[in-house]
């Protein structure tokens, strides 16, 4: 039996549409109109003719990205660091959020929360200086106050590749933890006490409450963060990979990501065609990854996909 179509009274929604307008205008002006600039990546730009009249040059502007196999280690670094950050991002902040949720003293909770959130508010340049003050071979805390008095030797951290995957991962977690944790914590705070009371009556332990109440509630947020993270798997936190290792060339094999490579290659030039080519490549791959990962999630758990 065919269901009768309900007549929708659009007039009722007019105020809602009006409220939508500023946001919509912002997105159109800021996010969609500039997209015509993508065409720069495929043209030999001529300022006298203007962007749209400049001749097309195919994929010529993309060539420097793939010159002589430089891209292998750079793509590896970008993707692997992002995968590690995604995995840790789904575990560490969730764990911290659950632990914070257990703190009962309100003042202490606020204090801890501020302390954990503080690094997120710092600029990467400041973080880079902090790290340098710890790791510098000439005057760093680790070398001058720990290693030298104990072993008589110092380590040139900025010249040694092996330490950096760990240092960068640590710095990333330390800096970003506070913000992700707040997201998960707000989800946990929205869980009604009724669930916990019911669980207690049924004899659930604290661990069981975490497993059967908190984690299922957190799942949509975790998945959303994961998909958003996947979309940026080809991008990297420029400040983290450029500022923190102080752009030390020796460390490039383990610290150089696509953004840093593009910056280093184009720093001395004003070639916006090549810069556009690099961001178009990143955006295209990111877009594809979001669609694919969302499709996979839709297959596994249809309720959790974002579109």
């Amino acid at each position: 039996m065919k269901a009768r179509k309900k007549k929708v009274n659009f007039k009722r929604f007019i105020p809602a549409y009006i409220m939508l307008l500023p946001g919509l205008a912002y997105f159109v002006i800021n996010n969609y109109i500039p997209m015509y600039g993508i065409t720069i990546a495929f043209r030999k730009l001529d300022f006298k003719k203007g962007i749209l009249r400049s001749p097309f040059c195919g994929f010529d502007n993309f060539k420097f990205l793939f010159a002589s196999g430089n891209m292998g280690p750079i793509i590896r670094n970008t993707v692997l660091y992002n995968l590690v950050f995604l995995a840790l991002g789904a575990i560490v902040p969730v764990a911290f959020a659950i632990l914070f949720n257990e703190i009962r003293a309100k003042r202490v909770k606020k204090l801890y929360q501020t302390v954990v959130l503080l690094p997120y508010l710092m600029s990467m340049v400041i973080v880079s200086s902090l790290v340098y003050n710890f790791l510098s071979a000439d005057m760093g805390f680790i070398n001058k106050s720990i290693l030298e008095p104990l072993t008589g030797q110092t380590v040139s951290f900025y010249q040694e590749k092996k330490f950096w995957p760990f240092i960068l991962t640590f710095v990333h977690e330390w800096k970003g933890l506070g913000f992700s944790m707040v997201l998960y914590l707000s989800t946990l705070l929205s869980i009604s006490d009724d669930f916990y009371e019911a669980a207690k009556i049924d004899g659930a332990t604290r661990l069981q409450q975490i497993r059967y109440i908190m984690l299922p509630f957190l799942r949509p947020t975790i998945i959303m963060m994961l998909i958003l993270g996947i979309s940026k798997i080809f991008n990297s936190d420029f400040g983290l990979f450029y500022q923190v290792p102080k752009n030390s060339g020796v460390l490039y094999p383990v610290t150089q990501t696509i953004d840093v490579y593009v910056y280093n290659a184009l720093m001395n030039q004003n070639n916006i065609m090549m810069s556009s080519a690099a961001s178009v490549a990143q955006a295209a791959i990111g877009f594809t990854l979001v669609i694919v990962s969302n499709l996979i999630i839709k297959k596994i758990s249809p309720d959790d996909s974002i579109f």
Partner: peptide
């Protein structure tokens, strides 16, 4: 030679500072 020079600039960024300060 724009593509080659851009790629070479990136190589210089990687090695020059370390070699010219004796750090490598």
């Amino acid at each position: 030679m724009t593509n080659q020079i851009t790629a070479i600039d990136a190589v210089l960024q990687e090695y020059r500072a370390a070699l010219e300060t004796g750090s490598a």
